[in-house]
Design a binder for these strands. Structure first.
Lengths: 253, 253
DNA sequence: TGCGGTGTTGCATTTCTTGCAACACTCGTT
DNA sequence: AACGAGTGTTGCAAGAAATGCAACACCGCA
């Protein structure tokens, strides 16, 4: 809607790929160097980009701090956290909390496994949307037409042989997940990692977040992990209850 | 430098304080509602701002993802991480890694304490710059005039009775830290929490990051914590060595 | 010393942003 | 049901602000 701002903001994802110098930025934006310079300067003043010693630009610290505050404003996270910790104490595995927002699913909290073999993931990282158990739950709750539109828009990378291959398979999986009220990812993202997940619902019944327990094959088999399902669901329901109860002014994802 | 972009970016810290509606944004920017609307729309298109169900705006998920990528591009973090984990395994306490950038010090990595009583902090959160041990190390390495300028610019909140009270005290502390090559924070931020910290240096000897071990009084006394100093310094030196060795193309903070 | 590469500045042109005012919409109220 | 306040949204004309250009400054290197 606003060309100047649009251009300036386009610089951010570009720099997320790695540091770049003025010329590179100008070229990828399709603008004159002097224009790129002025945009970068403005971003710099706000701390969103940083100029490192070799003069190249990269994303700045203020961006990280802003994101931090953004997450702290999500009240679902605050409510859920103690529950996640308790679940982790009971089962020992990695626990995740994720939300959906505008075609993306991302982790907003995590409690690390107490086993030495851990799964890699990071708070803030976008989730593999076509295979992750939490993503299935969050998308399964969308209205039918949105689900369809999103499914068609997505890429379906074959992380493993069990990854969801195409929109139709994905929609079928979502229908199933919607039906049963929980989801799994059995080696669909990384061959040796399984997850079970359950939805967290607001007062109106809509899914506002999803949580999962993940563990590698070498620690527990998929079947053993599935025995945790009732515990996971109970935890999720507990969070749902508390979230619906305290319906403070603040809204959520 | 660019008014439009400047205004748009000013919206972000504003929304970091909490969700706001169009009118509030317009008022705080000092622009007409329609202008604010168009700026917000542009931010929205880039996912930096999200419109929640009650129509109010808050910071968006893309921002969190961007910040995530920003941190992953910091190579010091990648190199340091395994060292931090090892240190945590040896002493059991919370370990932090922090960098300085444009008047801010922030944590970019953390390994949680294995004791039940934990200290609150979060990756990405700006550090209490006038008292934190890591902040002292990072600032102590700045050229003299920058140090002076920054010290005068800062606020000196009295978190506790032992907090650094004013610029002069701070500069004296920095001089001392610079001299001895390590730093402490003994109850300067939270009454019952102590830290010891050591600097990580690049090939040119400049401090590029700092790391610390923190523990509450109830777990170990300040004196006991200080016995860990040699271990902390050895770890930091190990990271420095590795960082200086691998001087790849990528620059750093 | 001269040369390529890169970043920076002043300026005229024109585009793009701005504020306005009127309109649409959703609530809560009478 | 009708009303009115509050809020969000759009088209448009005026003017301010962003743009690209070209010339300049700077650095490392041959």
């Amino acid at each position: 809607m606003s060309q100047t701002v649009d251009r300036a903001l386009s610089i951010l994802p570009l720099l997320a790929e790695g540091p770049a110098d003025l010329g590179q930025v100008a070229e990828r934006l399709g603008v004159h160097k002097s224009t790129a310079l002025r945009l970068l300067r403005t971003l710099h003043e706000h701390g969103l980009v940083y100029r490192q010693s070799d003069q190249r630009y990269r994303l700045g610290a203020r961006l990280i701090a802003l994101a931090q505050e953004a997450m702290e404003n999500l009240d679902i996270r605050e409510i859920a956290h103690p529950h996640l910790v308790r679940l982790n104490e009971q089962c020992g595995h990695t626990v995740h909390l994720a939300v959906y927002e505008e075609d993306e699913v991302l982790y907003i909290d995590k409690v690390e496994s107490r086993y030495p073999v851990r799964m890699y993931s990071r708070i803030g990282k976008p989730v593999a949307i076509t295979v992750a158990a939490v993503a299935k739950l969050l998308l399964a709750d969308l209205p039918e037409h949105e689900r369809r539109a999103l499914a068609d828009k997505l890429d379906y990378p074959m992380y493993t042989a069990r990854s969801t291959p195409n929109p139709d398979a994905f929609l079928r999986e979502l229908a199933k997940v919607r039906e049963q009220g929980w989801a799994t990812d059995l080696g669909g993202h990384e061959e040796s990692i399984n997850c079970v997940a359950a939805p967290i619902r607001g007062a109106d019944g809509r899914v506002v977040a999803a949580m999962s327990v993940s563990a590698p094959n070498v620690v527990v088999t998929a079947d053993e992990l599935l025995t945790l399902l009732p515990l996971v669901r109970r935890t999720a329901d507990g969070i749902s209850g508390e979230y619906s109860g305290r319906n403070t002014a603040k809204g959520t994802a």
